[in-house]
Design a protein around this nucleic acid. Sequence first.
DNA 1: GCAAGTACCTACCTATAAGTAAGTAGAGTT
DNA 2: AACTCTACTTACTTATAGGTAGGTACTTGC
Lengths: 124, 124
Amino acid sequence: MKNEADETYTCGLDAALDIIGGKWKVLILWHLHSGPHRFGELKRLVEGISEKMLIQQLKEMESHGIVSRKDFKEVPPRVEYAVTDFGVSLTEALRPLCAWGEEHMQRIEQCSHKCEAEKQRAAG
Amino acid sequence: MKNEADETYTCGLDAALDIIGGKWKVLILWHLHSGPHRFGELKRLVEGISEKMLIQQLKEMESHGIVSRKDFKEVPPRVEYAVTDFGVSLTEALRPLCAWGEEHMQRIEQCSHKCEAEKQRAAG
DNA sequence: GCAAGTACCTACCTATAAGTAAGTAGAGTT
DNA sequence: AACTCTACTTACTTATAGGTAGGTACTTGC
């Protein structure tokens, strides 16, 4: 967000959300947390993600140093993705938030349903 | 994200990011964390936010129960926003991530600059 | 009348994220 | 030849988030 040339982030959360914000990154990170995975494994584990989005997200996470990519130079291609040490520090920092989300998941779901219902009502 | 009628979140982070994801919510929450604020105060504190976005984000945060809105029924209007108990539990859960972001802020900024530079190089 | 203060609402536009579909490469199998 | 496996790339489209500009309401002061 606040990454214009002359500006810095207002707070640490702002910066952190630049690294893990968006629909897919936390899901990918969640699966990689349990150990290294190949591309195809991740694709099957992360339900609903397209190859294109998976590649894009992995590339971004790699460029942020959260994830490492190991190419075994084989044919058919064999590539393995794993969380880096830096990425592990992030997953550790995410633990409390993860627990909070688990604890309040039903509440969040109910709210989301209510918000959807209100939107549809407003749409007529 | 995963709030379709028949689906639930894959992990707690997924759910939590539904509550605080996006450009503005963490910044608003960060300012409200220090105590209740009126609309105009928040508008001045959160640099770069438009009234429209501030209203929209506050409304969403209120509907999620993170923020409370107290209308003093005065003219000119006087409304005060504060973090709820539920919101406090969220801010507590966000502390480690906030600290992580603070700790790695410069690294994140440098990476963002590099990504921008690469994008511009690719654009020609 | 205008301007200031306060906190919103609405219509429309722009930017960004995500999605779909087609394609690439090499090796092996039918 | 086609198909399978693997992991990508590219062009274009759609969905969503954020932004701009105009407006509302009331009171007070000039």
